[in-house]
């Protein structure tokens, strides 16, 4: 069964890559217009990240990372972000912290503090417990 799933995924991967590219362009233009919050929302939207294809995952991470690093006003961002995105944002924050890159870690830790305050520990628990839908 796992093999069959992998096959479908591989078939899908190209389609997902195209969608991610499309997303990237949209985010770039939002960032140029100085709308970092909108850009992050766009980045987190959809479930492209939940694919098992590593190439798609890393392509998507580059997009999210781009949007994350542009965030200046963390409180403002969180207050305009829908609670349904909290869990996925938390996953990306941990991915960022795992990179070991100093500016990325600093930024992720800054957002992590505010997000934990707002979304609670449950959000972290769901990230830790979910070994299937990784980003």
């Amino acid at each position: 069964m796992a093999g069959a799933e992998g096959f479908v995924e591989a078939d899908n991967a190209e389609a997902i890559m195209i969608r991610i590219e499309h997303k990237t362009r949209k985010i770039e233009s939002l960032l140029k217009q100085c709308k970092p919050v909108e850009a992050l929302k766009t980045a987190l939207e959809g479930t492209h990240a939940m694919t098992r294809d590593e190439r798609c995952k890393s392509a998507h991470w580059i997009v999210v990372h781009r949007a994350l690093m542009a965030i200046k006003d963390v409180d403002g961002m969180l207050s305009s972000l829908d609670p349904e995105y909290y869990d996925i944002l938390m996953k990306y924050l941990y991915k960022g912290l795992a990179t070991g890159d100093r500016p990325t870690c600093d930024q992720c830790l800054r957002i992590h503090e505010k997000l934990t305050e707002k979304a609670g520990f449950g959000c972290i628990l769901r990230h830790l417990a979910d070994t299937v839908n990784t980003v």
Binding site: D87, A119, G120, F121, G122, L125, R126
Partner: peptide, 16 residues
């Protein structure tokens, strides 16, 4: 609970 169950989940804010 039976042949066609209806499942819902609620996420907690804090610890499990």
């Amino acid at each position: 609970v039976g042949p066609s169950p209806l499942a819902q989940n609620v996420a907690c804010r804090d610890l499990p």
